[in-house]
């Protein structure tokens, strides 16, 4: 089921709606300061959309587009940027480039309203999809097929 992919109707509908799902995920994660939502929910929606691609188009095609080291790199980069932004907010500008980020109200708002949810979305989306890929590849029958 997973290897061959689903029928052509599902593939076409997925091609059309995929962009809207990702757009909705970005909206949810950046709308957290003015409405319900937040970085975590947006990140899980991103991961679910990638899981959707993988279920519809098959394992090989999804992994050909999105390699495993890309996922690991995205997770680690998001975590490092999140750590830096959070440290800027803790220390009030006592880290490199921190004084620039904490100087004005708009920069502070940018830091806490764009940077933090976006990095959280990156970490959660890439990380949860990496977990799903790892658990799917773990199965014994899949291993014998691929080796």
């Amino acid at each position: 089921m997973i290897q061959k992919g689903m029928s052509v109707i599902v593939k076409t509908v997925t091609k059309i709606t995929l962009g809207f799902i990702l757009l909705y995920a970005v909206y949810i994660s950046l709308n957290g300061h003015t409405g319900p939502g937040g970085g975590f929910a947006g990140g899980v929606i991103v991961a679910l959309s990638f899981v959707h691609i993988m279920l519809v188009f098959g394992k090989e095609m999804a992994l050909k587009r999105l390699r495993s080291y890309v996922l690991r790199g995205l997770t680690c980069a998001g975590a490092l940027i999140f750590l830096y932004a959070a440290t800027v907010k803790f220390s009030g500008g006592c880290v490199p480039f921190g004084a620039f980020l904490e100087k004005s109200v708009s920069c502070r708002l940018f830091n806490s309203e764009i940077t933090l949810p976006f990095c959280e979305m990156l970490i959660i989306g890439a990380g949860l999809f990496a977990i799903f890929v790892a658990l799917v590849l773990l199965s014994k029958s899949d291993r014998y097929d691929s080796e």
Partner: peptide, 18 residues
Amino acid sequence: GAKNVVAAITSNYRLMDT
């Protein structure tokens, strides 16, 4: 500057939690 108080708490007052 956040209208959502929960987001204000999790991303400003209690950022260590996040």
